[in-house]
Write a protein that binds this DNA or RNA. Structure first.
Lengths: 333, 333
DNA sequence: CTGAAAGCGCTTACAG
DNA sequence: CTGAAAGCGCTTACAG
């Protein structure tokens, strides 16, 4: 298909057809309330007749408003981060703002270069999954002077704003529950990343303070059912009498449930299992997975809302928003 | 934190410091090979000293190249589409091209408005999940005169290019396999969307041509394990002697496996089960799920490659790329 | 190998 | 309620 580059319609084409100035066309498109109805109608008709679509590069250059929010994620392949992006997307919908997506595939190097690439894009706000830790990156973001929302991890000193929950708190919550249920040989299984380690720490500290024994197995695992099987295997090897396990996410927990079933170990009779994330998978499994509810979508949506509020210059709000944690006790303990 | 809007560094600041013209700075940044090494070094040092980051809106306006590829998905919340986006992202990495993400939440209305919003953004290419069916939308995209890659669904008449597989072919492949394995009471379960219905059609046609009875249950289900349970229930209600079921995706199939286990129905003895998508979940389940391998990432990556090649004006290649289908026979039939 | 001039297509004050 | 002028910060030919 040989397509001739259509000579695109510009704002002065519309102005000429409508018999007004370019500025009136511009105004009709962005502040129609400031234009006399009759004029507005003529302009709108001209826009439709010509199929005029404003050039956003020109608009962004002149107005210093790109209508773009950057979102930086470790990987869009992990459903929890995808859900967070979806929350941001829904928050932005209706404002005609678009998302510029940066996926750095868990590579620190790609993260830095993406941050710099996004920095040149006149973003109106930036939302990142995780905290920005590098001093030079923080300085870069600060120099941009745009709203920045760090999500998932909480910190006392966000670059600008943060929305998330305490990973140590999640671990501690799970341990407290197990202790209260009379379990005494506890274990944690999860990824060997910053979030996993924080959950492990909160879990084991609380367990030991409660006079229970506790092991933590953190490994380079993704969000894979098969990894849950492996973690279970390692946990039982390290601490054979384990009677309660907290996994860093529901997928790992379901993997462990499958492995426990294959081994004929009763849940929760022999071992109690708890996940994190409240995924549909855990709800549909039998026995239904107990979990700590952390809703990825409900991190993304407020992050988007906060970014919008900051862009509008209203609702300063708190610097740090803790979305909190809820224990969802179901059948696995 | 009260941040003063940093007076941003512009290209002429760099030019002044380096003692060259703006144009030489510009050239150093995009075609360093055309600049004398000594000059280049001076410019690069000035860029670093000042922390200069080019304004991409101005660059896009002047060069008519935005460095942005649009990606339109029904929802980023479905992991298969997220994987496709990840494939596109990886394909674009290293070219300093960014993804503008449009998530329309399966709403035809939002899809149309997003398409129009993206149309104004000087995209260098557009990748969409699914086919663009509306004539007005197709006309809009054609008028943009940019590469367009439709993914997942195949068609003989793409707007520009298409990468995907035949949904009817997938259904037919599953049915042929079941027939060859001596099954005679077949069923399909899946979503009541365009892809689900096409898979159902291919499946039932082939089944009946093979003298097997076949029912197809298509419902408004997402990609949920619980939906797989429900579909199984409905299938057995409609056709109690069903001995082989093809599900539109692996998640539904695993849901059915859980339900079959709860009901004490042997797999594959009593019922054979096959999914589609080759998800890790199916591989980690026991018995391991047989599936038709369709790799979402491997649809996204070539889509990105094709877009890049078209942007570069090289490698015309075929208009339609069929990524093909592979039957992965494991333990469930 | 380097630069002066013109222009990309909008919007921002400001004036009336 | 509407418009003339200036400018946003780059890059594109073109010339030398």
């Amino acid at each position: 298909m040989l397509v001739m580059k259509a000579p695109s319609v510009r704002i002065d084409d519309v102005a000429r057809l409508a018999g007004v100035s370019m500025i009136t066309v511009s105004r009709t498109l962005r502040r129609p309330d400031l234009v006399k109805p009759a004029t507005r109608d003529r302009v709108q008709r001209a826009v439709e007749t010509l199929g005029y679509i404003p050039n956003s590069s020109a608009s962004a250059l002149a107005s210093r408003r790109s209508g773009i929010v950057g979102v930086l994620v470790p990987t869009i392949g992990n459903s929890i981060f995808a859900e967070t992006v979806r929350g941001v997307s829904d928050s932005l919908a209706g404002r005609n703002m678009q998302i510029l997506l940066g996926d750095y595939g868990y590579s620190a190097e790609r993260e830095r270069s993406l941050l710099r690439a996004l920095a040149g894009r006149q973003l109106e706000a930036l939302i990142v999954v995780g905290l920005v830790r590098e001093a030079s990156d923080r300085a870069l973001l600060a120099s941009l002077a745009i709203p920045v929302v760090e999500t998932w991890d909480l910190t006392r000193k966000p670059v600008d704003r943060a929305v998330g929950f305490s990973n140590r708190g999640a671990g501690s919550l799970a341990a407290r529950h197990f202790l209260g249920a009379g379990r005494h040989s506890l274990a944690f299984g999860g990824g060997n990343d910053i979030r996993g380690r924080a959950r492990a720490q909160g879990f084991t500290e609380t367990a030991r303070r409660g006079a229970a024994s506790a092991v933590a197995v953190t490994r380079d695992v993704g969000t894979a059912v098969g990894s849950g099987r492996e973690l279970l295997d390692e946990i039982l090897r390290q601490q054979p009498d384990t009677d309660a396990i907290f996994f860093a996410n529901d997928v790992l927990a379901v993997g462990a449930l499958l492995e426990l079933r294959d081994r004929g170990l009763a849940v929760p009779g022999r071992v109690a299992v708890m996940g994190l994330g409240d995924l549909e998978l855990g709800r549909a499994y039998r026995p239904q997975l107990s979990t700590i509810s952390v809703n990825a979508y409900k991190i993304g949506a407020p992050a988007g809302d906060i970014a919008l509020a900051r862009i509008d210059g209203v609702g300063a709000g708190p610097r740090v928003v803790d979305v909190g944690l809820e224990l969802l006790l179901r059948e696995t303990g």
